[in-house]
Amino acid sequence: MNIFRLAGDMTHLASVLVLLLKIHTIKSCAGVSLKTQELYAIVFATRYLDIFTSFYSIYNTLMKLVFLGSSFSIVLYMKYHKTVHRSYDREQDTFRHWFLVLPCLLLALLIHEKFTFLEVLWTFSLYLEAVAILPQLVLLQRTRNIDNLTGQYVFLLGGYRGLYILNWIYRYFTEPHFVHWITWISGLVQTLLYADFFFYYSQSWKNNKKLQLPA
């Protein structure tokens, strides 16, 4: 475990906590895309099936349980909690997210490191995670008033991906045979999707103005 990965995991954890804080404490999910949250729930459910087959560390298992639990509870909150559900921007959150799932599954069947059930699902989760933020970015662009928590949530998620890239560079130079092209390329694509958001986020921060994405 290097400092970049730990920082990346902690940033990821912080993003989930920010979102849970908003939903649980303020009872609002305004500006949060349910489509993205559903995709993340699928991502974690398919990636962390190896909880049952491989053990790496207590840390690893605990974090997997946290990400599984939080992603499913966020989806349930948004769908079934009366007050939270009322604040959901249903009319704006119209991205056809199921159309992302099938191409990712096909790509995972075609391009993978090993053709086993768990490995193909793991690869599918990498491809799906790379594009899962798209509905959220589209929703942000449509939302007139992006509140601070939603902006911070997306910023932390993007930060987590950026830190993971530093982690891969570090591991490549310090660990022999650490080469994972599929993970790297999907991670890079995922991080690039945030580039635009990061630009406007830093602008709003610098000018001390409310975050607003151009339509």
């Binding site: 995991d9 990821h12 087959t53 560390s57 690893n60 974090m63 490191e113 090993k114 993971y164 982690n167």
Partner: peptide, 10 residues
């Protein structure tokens, strides 16, 4: 051959 891939990252 049947050993699972090492996925130690999250």
């Amino acid at each position: 051959q049947d050993k699972p891939q090492n996925h130690d990252e999250l």
